[in-house]
């Protein structure tokens, strides 16, 4: 961060009364929350509670039908320029990695910088190599995604998102598709990222990660936010019975 002011002073994501319907199903029912720059927010909740839908509205992979979402000063509307501007600033990591199987690891990472930001290829490749070192797999640069393990693929996906130098990183259940021994290597990368003052919104069931790394834990249930507390309070004295119930089920 180059600014002198404290990161918490500035809300980089603002949601006001966000509603979303899939057909007649009311998936998000009036979400109001904000995330300040540099904050790490973990979103948890039972499946079908709208948590994935919520973070997908932040870069408009889903569009909301009512309310307001302002990301980095741009309001999310149907204006394509705003959406494209936001998507350049917001990186996303998916549960199923979604690497491009027909491109090498290196090309997966350099594609967006060269095509969207028009970075010269040589510079993009240097940056990609640095990112691969950061996520711990520089030796895999010339392989294809299909030749990597799940944990390695997810780390490439993180490097690919970081290559656009985003201000915000969204994680949509990044470890749910991984074997236990691979979860750790991905969480370590996320932990390092959180320590670097990146703004992070992560949907995850990894409560250990939530407890150690996050600034806030937000719990969704039936399309609403039912709890929004710092991790200590969330685990030790939640205000809602539903949180206790949820924790008792997954702990």
């Amino acid at each position: 961060m180059t600014t002198e002011e404290s990161p918490a002073a500035e809300d980089i994501i603002i949601c006001r009364d966000v509603h979303k319907w899939f057909g007649s199903f009311h998936a998000l029912r009036g979400i109001t929350t904000s995330v300040s720059a540099g904050e790490v927010v973990v979103v948890i909740g039972p499946s079908g509670s709208g948590k994935s839908t919520f973070i997908r509205t932040i870069n408009r992979l889903e569009h909301h039908q009512r309310g307001q979402i302002i990301v980095d000063g741009f309001e999310m509307t149907d204006d394509v320029r705003n959406i494209d501007a936001i998507r350049r600033e917001v990186g996303m990591v998916f549960q199923s990695f979604n690497l491009f199987p027909h491109l090498t690891v290196m090309r997966n990472i350099t594609l967006a910088p060269t095509k969207v930001r028009h970075t010269p290829m040589a510079d993009a490749e240097d940056a990609a190599m640095e990112l691969l070192e950061r996520v711990g797999i520089p030796e895999q640069a010339d392989k294809y995604p299909g030749e990597l393990s799940g944990g390695q693929q997810q780390r490439v996906a993180i490097a690919r998102a970081l290559a656009m130098q985003p201000k915000i990183m969204l994680f949509d259940e990044p470890t749910s598709a991984l074997d236990p021994e691979m979860i750790k290597e991905v969480l370590e990368v996320m932990q390092e990222l959180a320590a670097s003052q990146m703004t992070i919104v992560a949907v995850t069931h990894e409560l250990g990660f939530a407890r150690e790394v996050s600034d806030r834990i937000v719990m969704f249930d039936e399309g609403q936010i039912v709890e929004d507390l710092p991790p200590d309070d969330f685990f030790n004295n939640p205000r809602h019975e539903r949180v206790r119930h949820f924790l008792s089920q997954i702990l």
Binding site: L61, D84, R87
Partner: peptide, 10 residues
């Protein structure tokens, strides 16, 4: 695949 590409700003 398309979602990942769009999320990257393509």
């Amino acid at each position: 695949q398309a979602e990942a590409a769009r999320a990257l700003g393509l």
